[in-house]
């Protein structure tokens, strides 16, 4: 093996340029829940970083899809930032289960900002994703993959992460179906499951409630669970109410535990709680 002092200076410079740099914490967007933001490197969702979202089981696909839409919205919520969101899906996914515009509106996102790309297979999707990430005119690129997706290995995810770092576009990898987390260059990896919502009047299902697990974080702690609720009007998450639990008897509206006021609850006096 060559000693480094014997390397020609040009090669040395090339090696130095190619060496992975220490991760720089760029711009972040706080998610809104203090507990989560404290744990995330930089205090929020890193812009220009790869984030992976896994659905806990197949029934949680709606929640995971919603979480991806929410994160995309959080990452591009700056006033005056109308950068489009590119959502790449496979043909089969779009045929079986279409993204519903009014549903996106109900999560607070303007579907007019969304560009939907329907690609024939995973290879085309990943290729289009990396190409799109080089285009700084975009805000977020969501890549939705179903099943194991063996093509998405460490190399592919590094390629995605590098492209994103250079342009500042935030990639979100949404893994649905029976996806197993593998090695990747992601900044954060989330498990998403549905959680019982705080019922509205007359026992109606309430605001989207999710159970988030931070499985992994590059350069930060991981292994936490949070129950959160999506606040569409403030474009952020908030802690789920502790009252959002089923009574043992089952059926009927859920009674609210007395005095279970969480910090931040008072600020949201405007929204309805079941009695």
């Amino acid at each position: 093996m060559l000693e480094s002092s014997r390397l020609p200076p040009a090669l040395k410079r090339a090696l130095a340029a190619a060496a992975p740099r220490a991760p720089v914490v760029g711009a972040v967007r706080p998610l809104g829940v203090e507990g989560i933001d404290r744990m995330l490197a930089g205090g929020g969702l890193g812009k220009g970083r790869l984030h992976e979202i896994f659905a806990r089981e197949s029934l949680d696909e709606g929640s995971a899809t919603g979480f991806a839409a929410m994160l995309a919205h959080v990452a591009t919520r700056e006033p005056g930032d109308a950068s489009p969101i590119l959502w790449l899906r496979e043909d089969t996914a779009q045929r079986r289960c279409a993204l519903h515009g009014p549903g996106l509106v109900d999560l607070g996102m303007d579907p007019a900002r969304l560009i939907l790309g329907v690609l024939p297979d995973v290879r085309a999707l990943l290729r289009a994703g990396v190409d799109a990430l080089r285009c700084a005119g975009l805000g977020v690129v969501v890549m939705e993959l179903h099943g194991a997706a063996p093509l998405l290995d460490l190399t592919a995810s590094r390629r995605i992460a590098l492209a994103a770092e250079a342009s500042g576009v935030t990639p979100l990898l949404l893994r649905l179906g029976k996806a197993q987390p593998g090695p990747s260059a992601a900044q954060s990896r989330w498990h998403v499951a549905a959680a019982l919502s705080a019922a509205l009047e007359a026992g109606a299902p309430g605001h989207p409630a999710l159970r988030l697990s931070l499985l992994r974080q590059r350069g930060g702690p991981a292994g936490f669970d949070w129950d959160v609720e999506w606040d569409r009007d403030a474009v952020c998450f908030r802690p789920a109410l502790p009252g959002a639990r089923l009574p043992l008897s089952g059926g009927g509206p859920v009674p609210l535990e007395a005095g279970a006021g969480e910090s931040g609850r008072e600020a949201d006096a405007g929204w309805r709680i079941a009695v």
Binding site: E61, G62, T65, G66, A69, R95, R96, C97, A98, L99, H100, G101, P102, G103, L104, V105, D106, L107, G108, D110, P111, A112, S197, L200, A204, P205, G206, H207, P208, R232, D233, G270, W271, R272
Partner: peptide
Amino acid sequence: PGWDAPPAGESPLRPISLLD
């Protein structure tokens, strides 16, 4: 045509994915 903004404070009335 643009999308109408949802009324404030309501929970979502429409699903995000539609089975077909």
